[in-house]
Design a protein around this nucleic acid. Structure first.
Length: 298
DNA sequence: TACCAGGAGAGCG
DNA sequence: CGCTCTCATGGT
């Protein structure tokens, strides 16, 4: 732990982007990324090894970071600013469920995250609430990540630790980050990647089927975790994570008479929601979690 | 107190 | 395959 006076600090660089159909708050709090903190009307996080502060004012996105970046493509890419949302929404099925879900949170977007950080986040996600996942990911960053340059007056932040760094940890050290039974999963996954048994970057150019199978060779990575990484980090447009929320929603809304089998449900999600089914899934998930969520089953 | 949380792995028939 | 149990931890 660095003392406050030793903390790396740096001057702020600023840039403004024009947003179209973009709800920054919904996007950063939707349970796809876990290192964003909301403070005084702004979102503070870490992207591509940089401290970032984002503020949305209508169609303006005000971005601040440290140092003097030559360009802002790293942020444009992460936020997927160039994606025409209206064209994607047009491909959704025009049923009442999807229409309601889109109207409820229009502007919700998919990010393009770092492969390893995303993979780690969702290995930790199993039977945890989003708040707990955030705490675990942040704890890993604080303990094992390299401190980043941060503007004066802001809390210190660290880069997310590499597979090599986490592979050096003991299981006990990881359990201290409240990982519980997921600790040995993450440790073994980090070791395999650090040792070169699996190259995460190479899967970016592979087919979704191959990438999915490769991810699922890692401990703690089943169908749901693999699909989350394929959607949130690799950007496969038709990756469709089926968690407990989506499972209940689809069963009750689309198979009201008798529940679909696993096979039928997989066939349904692969075809019914169209070529951007991953985006449709995110709208369904966000709607279920925020609007209906804790009050009643459906 | 008892129950559950954006699952996965292992052990059954 | 399809089902069930377990795993660690914190919050209602």
């Amino acid at each position: 732990m660095l003392a406050s006076s030793e903390r790396p600090t740096s001057a702020i660089a600023e840039q403004t982007f024009a947003l179209t159909d973009y709800d920054l708050a919904a996007t950063l709090s939707s349970g796809q990324a876990f290192r964003w903190r909301y403070q005084d009307g702004s979102w503070v996080g870490v992207v591509a090894g940089r401290w970032v502060r984002l503020t949305q004012q209508n169609t303006d996105l005000h971005a601040q970071t440290t140092g003097a970046p030559e360009d802002w493509s790293w942020l444009r890419n992460y936020l997927q600013l160039e994606i025409p949302l209206s064209q994607i929404i047009q491909t959704f099925p025009k049923d009442e469920v999807m229409t309601t879900a889109v109207q409820a949170s229009r502007g919700l977007r998919l990010l393009k995250q770092d492969h390893w950080e995303c993979l780690t986040s969702f290995i930790l996600s199993s039977t945890k609430r989003i708040v707990q996942i955030q705490q675990c990911v942040e704890s890993l960053g604080e303990r094992f990540g390299a401190p980043l340059p941060v503007p004066p007056g802001f809390p210190s932040r660290s880069n997310f630790p590499s597979p090599h760094r986490l592979a050096e940890c003991t299981e006990s050290e990881l359990r201290d980050c409240k990982l519980g039974f997921r600790a040995p999963y993450l440790l073994e996954a980090a070791r395999r990647i650090a040792q070169g048994h699996l190259h995460l970057a190479d899967l970016q150019n592979a087919s979704i089927e191959y990438a999915r199978n490769q991810l699922m060779t890692l401990p703690g990575v089943g169908p749901k975790v693999a699909d989350c990484v394929l959607l949130f980090a690799y950007g496969f447009p038709n990756a469709f994570p089926v968690d407990v929320w989506i499972y209940k929603a689809i069963q009750q809304l689309y198979f009201p008479k008798r529940p679909a089998t696993t096979r039928q449900l997989q066939q349904f999600t692969q075809t019914y929601f169209g070529p951007h089914s991953g985006y449709a899934q995110q709208y369904l998930f966000h709607y279920m979690r925020t609007k209906i969520g804790r009050t009643q089953a459906l």
